[in-house]
């Protein structure tokens, strides 16, 4: 049994939490996301794709760090591709970057509290929300350790804690499972399912098994465009015996990419 949150019963005024149409985003001079269409709602969405497919650039654009070069992008019903005020949208965002920089002298608690303050959470709820976020990622014992003393996996979890501290409506995690040991990955999948109940979670990863285990929806990207969007079961059904991979999902993934490349080369 679980409590029904207010967000689940309140009506939304927008059809999609994340909606991109013909989105183009530059990474330096190179157009890394080129004409991407994407519509996501509540649930956990896995973002798969080969290196250089534009996953990280897409994540940065969705996190409002990069300004799109073209197309339309709306988050939580607000246009974020122009010069509009991003403040309201940003309060509802959680973002874990792939290269995750931090201030080494901060303790984990100071870091998460600082991020909660930057996300303009009400002053009175910050200490409680910080403690809860740190407990949810299993770092309660290290809450007062300095960031520079943490191992890679712990840093990653501190990063996840700052991303979920404001109970974001859109949570963007770029390669969150790098550096986590197998047990922590299982806990992390549990956390993802929990958060995905009432928010839109987009997880970029290279690990197909993570997507199958924790995601309700799979998005595959290649060369800046969406190749495929469907359920994990459907992804597994795409693969045949002749495709590369050790599991049905991996075979489905390589089959979809192979077909896409064949169409592109024709």
């Amino acid at each position: 049994m679980r409590t029904v949150s207010a967000a689940e019963t309140a009506p939304t005024t927008y059809p999609w939490a994340v909606h991109a149409q013909g989105l183009r985003v530059r990474a330096g001079r190179h157009v890394a996301v080129d004409g991407l269409d994407l519509a996501l709602n509540t649930g956990v969405h896995g973002l798969l794709g080969p290196n250089g497919a534009g996953k990280t650039t897409l994540m940065r654009a969705l996190a409002t760090v990069l300004k799109p070069a073209g197309g339309q992008l709306s988050l939580l019903g607000e246009q974020v591709d122009g010069r509009g005020d991003l403040r309201l949208v940003r309060r509802g965002l959680g973002y874990l970057p792939q290269q995750f920089g931090f201030y080494p002298r901060f303790t984990v608690r100071e870091f998460v509290e600082y991020m909660a303050w930057l996300k303009e959470m009400p002053k009175t709820v910050v200490p409680g929300a910080t403690q809860r976020a740190i407990e949810r990622v299993g770092l309660a014992g290290k809450a007062d350790a300095r960031m520079k003393t943490l191992s890679g996996g712990m840093l990653r979890r501190a990063g996840i804690a700052q991303a979920i501290v404001n109970d974001p409506a859109v949570l963007l995690l770029d390669e969150p499972t790098v550096g986590l040991d197998p047990e922590q990955r299982l806990d992390f999948r549990e956390l993802l399912r929990d958060v995905g109940v009432d928010s839109c979670v987009l997880v970029s990863t290279h690990l197909v098994e993570d997507v199958v285990a924790a995601c309700s929806d799979v998005v595959i990207m290649n060369e800046g465009r969406t190749v495929y969007q469907g359920t994990p079961a459907d992804l597994m059904a795409q693969g045949g015996d002749g495709d590369a991979g050790d599991s049905p999902a991996e075979r489905g993934y390589s089959a979809l990419l192979r077909r896409h490349r064949a169409v592109g080369n024709r």
């Binding site: 760090v65 403040r87 309060r91």
Partner: peptide, 15 residues
């Protein structure tokens, strides 16, 4: 110069 710029740039208070 800001190691956490990417985290900070996406928050509401940035600007």
């Amino acid at each position: 110069h800001d190691p956490a710029w990417e985290l900070i740039a996406g928050t509401a208070a940035a600007g």
